[in-house]
């Protein structure tokens, strides 16, 4: 994307950042003036520059999560001016450029807020609750060994496309951060649907949705009130239609598990 501004037009902003030394320390907002901001800088680069200045002054730099800086890893996680991943649409914080802001702006930067994402330091939160949900069923069980023949299991193109839409979830947690109730429904729905739409995901489909929803509830996320704040901020624009699909899948699994025939076999096929 070509900036409308030339990169020579530097400007100044104030970063108002949540600083909190540790999980049990009390936190507060601290203002950091930033001058010589280039519109071509990414937001995280600005944080880097501000941190360099803090380091030179022998102050503690702002802790923030980041890794790939190209929108595919889901590590960056700031809430900027009240919106997870900032003012853009369909981008992660690392894809946000300073051209989105104006000279003199005060930019308020906060961590993702949810009980299930306990704060570690400053803007860094512990999102391992997502890992626990994944471990509960976000996988398929396959035999290891030689790779199966390609295309040995036909997958209709429509299903593959839809599964891919769900699989684009990078697990950043913006859906939880944006939800008024800190609900993880969009994340769990994406993970449940991604495998549930594929033939390889069918054997464990019911078990998966029941186990993942249970893990979600145990992690202390809120409940969905169908306001769709989640999909509005999702950097991968995953649709909340997957939530409706998961709701359906969950009820079906619940009733199927309850009313399935009871097997008379007590052991294996001995």
């Amino acid at each position: 994307m070509v900036s409308e501004r030339s990169s020579k037009e530097f400007f100044a902003v104030t970063l108002r950042v949540w600083r909190q030394a540790g999980p049990s320390a009390s936190g507060r907002f601290v203002d950091y003036p930033a001058t010589n901001v280039s519109p071509d800088m990414s937001f995280l680069e600005l944080l880097d520059v501000v941190n360099d200045g803090l380091t030179v002054k022998d102050e503690e730099p702002i802790a923030f999560a980041h890794d790939c800086r190209e929108g595919i890893c889901g590590t960056c996680s700031c809430t900027i001016n009240g919106k997870p991943h900032g003012p853009g649409h369909g981008i992660a914080t690392c894809q946000l450029y300073m051209r989105s802001f104006k000279d003199g702006d005060t930019i308020i930067v906060e961590p993702f807020r949810a009980r299930a994402f306990p704060l570690v330091k400053d803007l860094v939160t512990d999102r391992s609750a997502f890992d626990r949900i994944q471990q509960a069923g976000g996988f398929i069980s396959v035999r290891t060994g030689a790779a199966p023949d390609a295309n040995s299991i036909p997958v209709p193109k429509d299903d593959a496309d839809l599964a891919m839409d769900a699989a684009t979830c990078i697990g950043c947690g913006a859906c939880v951060a944006a939800c008024k109730n800190a609900s993880a429904m969009l994340f769990v729905a994406a993970k449940v649907s991604h495998l549930g739409l594929m033939p390889q995901g069918q054997p464990e489909r019911d078990k998966r949705v029941l186990a993942m929803v249970q893990a979600m509830d145990e992690a202390g996320f809120g409940n969905c009130t169908n306001q769709y704040e989640c999909s509005a901020v999702c950097p991968k624009l995953i649709t909340h239609d997957f939530i409706a699909r998961m709701n359906r899948d969950y009820v079906k699994a619940l009733f199927k598990a309850k009313f399935k025939p009871v097997s008379s076999a007590s052991g294996g096929a001995g």
Binding site: F29, E110, N181, A182, V233
Partner: peptide, 20 residues
Amino acid sequence: AENRAARPQGYGVEHTNRAT
């Protein structure tokens, strides 16, 4: 009650994207 407990600390800036 559960939804409120799920976010014990709120945001400094309250922002609504599209919740009616």
